[in-house]
Design a protein around this nucleic acid. Structure first.
Lengths: 165, 165
DNA sequence: ATATATCATCTGATCAACAGATGATCTGTA
DNA sequence: TACAGATCATCTGTTGATCAGATGATATAT
């Protein structure tokens, strides 16, 4: 018998995360044909609906997307009538990106399909474990995200805001 | 009061995984200055040491790296004396990639530093939760990886092998 | 007022990823 | 045995995405 060949015993978080995330992208891309730019457009739309970030830059920073890319991502979403660029009343340089009714509808449907895909992807885990994994990943990410305010102006804004209270 | 602003309540696995993985890459890159090609070289070296995959193609498939990229990744690792290309006695087309003593040493040291980085990255979770997260991620990934044999010739080989027993 | 910073956008340059071709070798088959 | 088709590692050329930098409009600070 040679040395151990079994993968599961070799701890390699980077590899494991990459495998899961790659699979997520693949699986999700299949059910997001109706959202422009696939998973990218989905992420943007999701963020627009669930958070309200002040500017495109904030949106971009939140998703770690380049600001110049964000421009044409929103172009496409707007072209499909999923979001609108409204002038920001408080700052005429900025645009408020707001989801249309149709955008919210499309997102809701997409989210259901994505959730289904995630169930399949995580089918190696029991239901409880899946829930735990979702929760832990979410919390780890949230912590990382808050820890690094520079990466997301919105967080910094929030911190200043919290401080004021 | 506006709609909810809190991130942690919005389930978005793709976003969360991306945040954690991105942070992993950043953090790990810092402590892998001595490994050529940074985290990529590290992953290859790690795979070479811990698994024994027959060919460069298998190595590439395992890590989802293009075969043409694998060529120069190994070029660099070999140039640094971390691995060797040995002719495969059974198949003269193929090369066995084997770690040198120095390679194993460098890897071991790197793995310790990477583990330390992971502790920092996951510091938003308790020790138990960190362990759970590592375990669940690993198992989810392993399951995905085995589920898709085409992605990794080695797995297919293993399946045939298992069938024979 | 003037200077500096920020927002969204556009342009151009760069660079990594991939498809395709190549030479060597293996496997199967007639 | 010879031949066809597949596979291994490598090389080359192209392409497509990413990002730095510039721009015009606007905000903020001195």
């Amino acid at each position: 018998m040679a040395q151990r060949t079994d993968l599961s015993t070799t701890r390699n978080l980077g590899w494991a995360l990459a495998v899961v995330l790659r699979r997520w992208h693949e699986g999700v891309e299949d059910v997001l044909k109706d959202v422009p730019q696939g998973s990218r457009g989905y992420q943007v739309l999701s963020t627009v609906v669930h958070e309200q970030l002040p500017t495109q830059v904030a949106l971009a920073a939140h998703l770690s997307i380049d600001r110049t890319v964000m421009t044409y991502l929103i172009d496409e979403l707007e072209g499909d009538g999923l979001v609108e660029r409204r002038p920001d009343p408080a700052d005429r340089r900025a645009r408020r990106i707001v989801a249309t009714a149709r955008g919210r509808k499309v997102l809701a449907a997409a989210e259901r399909r994505v959730a289904a895909v995630e169930d399949v992807i995580l089918s190696g885990l029991s239901a409880d474990e899946q829930a735990a994994f979702q929760d832990l990943t979410q919390r780890a990410a949230t912590h990382i995200h808050h820890e690094d305010p520079n990466a997301d102006p919105c967080t910094a804004v929030r911190q200043v805001f919290d401080q004021a209270n």
